[in-house]
Design a protein around this nucleic acid. Structure first.
Length: 293
DNA sequence: AGACTAACCTGAAAGC
DNA sequence: TGCTTTCAGGTTAGTC
């Protein structure tokens, strides 16, 4: 679920649930490496606080608190952040402003053994739930004025990427261009789906050594990264491998995919190539051998 | 520094 | 049917 577009969609959904509301209680699971800040500390620091804003950088969310501290959140591979009573699947696949039917509200995954953080508020309204099956997600409390090494080493947000950045970063790299795009220290926010989609859009094969890119190709890849990410945000992000809703209407970026997880299918652009799959840097990669060079 | 691998976890799906 | 293997949208620590 979580690359830049999904995190941004989540951010927008979470803002009204969090901003301006006073935290009355904090419920957690037992200590695990999900908690960069131990649960007990988290409870002490968050109880009584009001969130003033929720920002995003790459795949990280940053909630600013009224005492100057911040909370850093990462969804990892399976993290979901949503309000109690509303299905997160519905949230991620719906377009902004869509209303929820009673059945959909009832389908909300309530707190369970994978709900590692739950915030209750003093207005008695909906709780904020953070579920994460695989626990690759992270939550950290940052003292006022303090940063975090995870944040410090991120490159610029991928929505602001330009050809010059990719050109500079690619010059000394012999590794595949796909690996470059996934390096959060170069640009923050692109993950496996959107790396494949952007490279497809730019006609660049993901296996190509980064340093073999021309300047013009860097410009094109940058344009495609921005286009693909913005379009995905517009459509509510991707929910591949999530179930299809009973009523059939799902929307979402997974329907606009050209390459990712289309192994063996006909290329939608040239209509002759067949989408190939290869492992690059430990991640499965998808491309058209005929029109990506 | 850059490039690879393994590891962190859980669950669904495919393979036998 | 049931057991085993493979795979998954991410990041980090360790090695060469």
């Amino acid at each position: 679920m979580p690359e830049l577009p999904e995190v941004e969609v989540t951010r927008r959904q979470v803002v009204p649930l969090l901003v301006g509301r006073r935290i009355a209680a904090v419920h957690t699971t037992r200590p695990s490496y999900f908690f960069v800040t131990p649960p007990a500390t988290l409870k002490r620091r968050l109880t009584g606080r009001v969130t003033t804003a929720v920002a995003r950088h790459g795949k990280y969310l940053l909630a600013a608190l009224d005492d100057g501290a911040r909370v850093l959140l990462h969804l990892g591979m399976t993290g979901q952040l949503y309000g109690s009573g509303v299905s997160s699947v519905r949230l991620l696949s719906s377009t902004a402003g869509a209303t929820l039917s009673p059945e959909e509200q009832e389908s909300a995954p309530g707190p369970d053994r994978h709900t590692h953080l739950r915030l209750a508020f003093d207005d008695g309204g909906r709780d904020l739930l953070f579920r994460d099956t695989r626990k690759f997600g992270k939550v950290a409390w940052l003292a006022p004025g303090a940063s975090d090494p995870r944040l410090d080493k991120l490159g610029p947000d991928a929505l602001g990427v330009d050809g010059a950045l990719l050109w500079t970063a690619s010059r000394r790299r012999t590794a595949p261009v796909k690996t470059l795009l996934l390096d959060q220290g170069v640009l923050a926010g692109v993950g496996n789906i959107y790396a494949d989609e952007a490279l497809f859009g730019a006609h660049v094969r993901p296996t190509r050594s980064a340093r073999r890119l021309t300047r013009a190709e860097c410009d094109l890849v940058a344009v495609e990264i921005r286009r693909v990410l913005l379009r995905s945000i517009e459509t509510g992000g991707s929910s591949i491998s999530d179930y299809v809703r009973p009523d059939g209407s799902d929307g979402g970026y997974q329907d606009e995919r050209q390459a990712y997880a289309r192994t063996g299918e006909r290329c939608l652009r040239c209509a002759e190539g067949v989408i190939a799959r290869r492992v690059i840097g430990g991640r499965s990669s998808h491309y058209c051998p005929r029109c990506q060079h």
